[in-house]
């Protein structure tokens, strides 16, 4: 290949994000989206949750998880716009989708970093 190509690498991230979403999201949605807020399961003790979230390993794992899932969503949604709404401005759609994922990733990094600080 004489030209550097980005699409194959984005696809790899999409695939990784897809695997992680498939395996991690069900339990995360059930616990953090429904069970804890609605009290089906007692929400974790604050100090314990803070300690888990502040741990460096958690930081790395959550960062990887969130960023890859955002890239997965952006990539899939981009093609949904092409195929579903038949939007022809392909480059604009791509920039918007991946741009949003990048912004989300930066915000994720900032929040995770801040949460890991004052533990």
């Amino acid at each position: 290949m004489t030209r550097r190509r980005v699409e194959p690498l984005v696809w790899l991230m999409f695939s990784a994000g897809g695997v992680l979403a498939a395996v991690f999201l069900p339990i995360l949605v059930i616990l953090f989206g429904l069970a804890f807020p609605l009290g089906w399961v007692d929400p974790p003790d604050y100090q314990h949750l803070r300690a888990v979230i502040g741990h460096p390993v958690t930081f790395v794992v959550l960062l990887g998880l969130f960023v890859l899932m955002l890239v997965h969503s952006a990539h899939r949604f981009r093609y949904t716009l092409y195929d579903g709404l038949q939007i022809k401005h392909k480059r604009t759609v791509a920039v918007l989708c991946y741009g949003t994922a990048i912004v989300g990733s930066v915000a994720t990094l900032a929040v995770l970093w801040a949460a890991a600080q004052a533990v």
Binding site: M1, R4, R5, L9, W11, L12, S15
Partner: peptide, 13 residues
């Protein structure tokens, strides 16, 4: 083929 192409791109990088 996508996987093959992606791995070839990684190798090239």
């Amino acid at each position: 083929y996508k996987l093959k192409a992606a791995l070839a791109t990684v190798k090239a990088f």
